[in-house]
Design a binder for these strands. Structure first.
Length: 284
DNA sequence: CTTACGGCCTGGGTGC
DNA sequence: TGCACCCAGGCCGTAA
């Protein structure tokens, strides 16, 4: 499942392959995950790739249109759960569920594959790009401690839900949320408003450390994630809690538990990450 | 207003 | 060999 580190790894791969390339033609398979397929077919051919950026879990391919440079636009890509991008020779075998092909002017092909099609693709003009990015949360690697703290403490929701909410922080998914909370020794059901300064500092550090280390290891390949060069990540070897139910906590030896928090299966150590006091209200 | 929760989309993996 | 079920991220509707 691509989260921030996986998307960053893909972005780095694309930065080595796309900038300066011109898109010659576009071929689409299933299009139900594309906001406006006709716009893709109309606007992309002839355009030239400027830069490739990442914001949270979004990949942003900046494009210069073929007719004059005045109307630049971008291609927003969200990989969803199973989205994969490769840049390969056109004769490379076509992976099943590949639905987007761009022929590039260096003879290679950009391909988007997505088994579940939970991903999203949309063309955005320069203006709508700004308003769209305005709705996306802070990138956790760009947020300062003060911004992070303000965000967490501004809401009563559980810390797990806060970290997962893409409107607040953009880029954290289930794996890195659980790993960060374990490292910071904070229970997933703690309320944001109740977090102490020291805890917020620990969590902020933990989030950054985990994400940066995962990026260095090219992400986590828990199911079939591969980057744009087809390589698997290796951070899954460093997971301390994710999918380790019943195994020993690396810190204290207690058995890792799994519970549903914020609608997601959540892994934590019941000893290191102490649960908040029962905050069951009223029910008599 | 806020937060919680269930359902929906899809299809591979799992377990009976 | 079949097949019901689970699960994932984002989003939306509804309830409290």
């Amino acid at each position: 499942m691509p989260e921030l580190p996986e998307v960053e790894t893909v972005a780095r791969g694309l930065r080595a392959a796309l900038p300066g390339r011109r898109i010659l033609s576009v071929r689409l398979g299933k299009t139900d995950f594309i906001e406006d397929p006709a716009a893709m077919e109309r606007d992309l051919p002839g355009s030239k790739v400027g830069s490739v950026r990442r914001h949270g879990k979004f990949l942003i391919v900046e494009l210069e249109s073929s007719n004059g440079s005045a109307d630049n636009f971008s291609l927003f890509i969200h990989l969803g759960m199973t989205g994969q991008i490769v840049v390969c020779p056109p004769e490379a075998p076509e992976a099943p569920h590949t639905h987007v092909f761009f022929a590039l002017d260096d003879g290679r092909e950009f391909r988007y594959t997505d088994v579940r099609r939970f991903g999203k693709m949309r063309i955005l003009s320069a203006e709508s790009r700004k308003s769209t990015l305005g709705k996306v949360g802070l990138d956790p690697l760009e947020a300062t401690l003060d911004e992070f703290s303000a965000l967490v403490r501004s809401r009563r929701a559980r810390i797990k839900a806060l970290l997962l909410d893409q409107h607040g922080l953009s880029g954290m998914g289930n794996i890195y949320t659980d790993e960060s909370l374990w490292r910071a020794r904070i229970h997933p059901t703690r309320l944001g408003v109740h977090m102490k300064d020291a805890e917020l500092r620990r969590l902020y550090r933990a989030v950054r450390d985990i994400l940066n280390q995962a990026i260095r290891m090219r992400g986590s390949s828990v199911s079939d994630y591969v980057d744009s060069e087809g390589r698997r990540g290796s951070f899954q070897q460093r997971h301390k809690v994710y999918q380790r139910k019943g195994k020993k906590c690396f810190r204290c030896g207690a058995l890792i538990r799994r519970a549903i928090v914020a609608g997601r299966s959540s892994y934590f150590c019941p000893r290191c990450q102490t649960a908040p006091r029962n905050r069951r209200r009223s029910s008599r």
